[in-house]
Amino acid sequence: MSMKRANAYLKNVLAHKECVAFRKFKNGVGKCAQAKQFNTITGRWPKRAAECIQNLLRNAAANCEFYGKDPDDFLIDHIQVNQAPALTRRTYRAHGRINPYNRHTSHIQVILKELEANIKTK
Rank of each mutant, 00 (worst) to 15 (best):
M3L: 13
M3I: 06
M3S: 04
K4D: 13
A6S: 15
A6C: 13
N7V: 09
N7Q: 12
A8T: 13
Y9V: 01
L10Q: 01
K11T: 14
K11I: 06
V13T: 00
L14W: 00
A15N: 15
H16M: 15
K17E: 14
K17I: 04
K17Y: 07
K17A: 07
E18L: 14
C19T: 15
R23E: 11
N27I: 13
V29K: 00
G30L: 01
K31D: 12
A33V: 08
K36Y: 04
Q37N: 08
Q37H: 13
F38D: 01
T42K: 12
G43A: 13
G43E: 03
G43I: 02
R44T: 12
K47T: 15
A49R: 08
A50V: 00
E51T: 04
E51P: 02
E51C: 08
C52T: 10
Q54Y: 05
Q54N: 09
N55D: 15
L56W: 02
L56D: 14
L57K: 00
A61R: 03
A62P: 03
N63Y: 07
C64Q: 03
F66T: 10
Y67R: 11
G68Q: 03
G68M: 04
D70Y: 02
D72E: 14
F74D: 00
L75K: 07
I76C: 05
I76M: 05
D77W: 10
H78A: 07
I79M: 07
I79A: 10
Q80Y: 05
Q80M: 09
N82W: 08
A84N: 04
A84G: 02
A84H: 04
P85Y: 03
A86K: 08
A86C: 04
A86W: 03
L87M: 11
L87W: 10
T88Q: 12
R90P: 01
T91W: 14
T91N: 14
R93S: 13
R93Q: 15
H95D: 09
R97P: 05
I98R: 13
I98G: 05
N99F: 13
R103A: 15
H104S: 11
T105Q: 14
H107V: 14
I108H: 00
Q109E: 11
Q109N: 10
Q109S: 11
V110C: 12
V110A: 05
I111P: 02
L112R: 00
K113I: 04
K113C: 04
K113E: 10
E114C: 02
L115M: 14
L115I: 14
A117M: 04
I119R: 10
I119Q: 11
K120F: 08
K120Y: 08
T121C: 03
K122A: 11
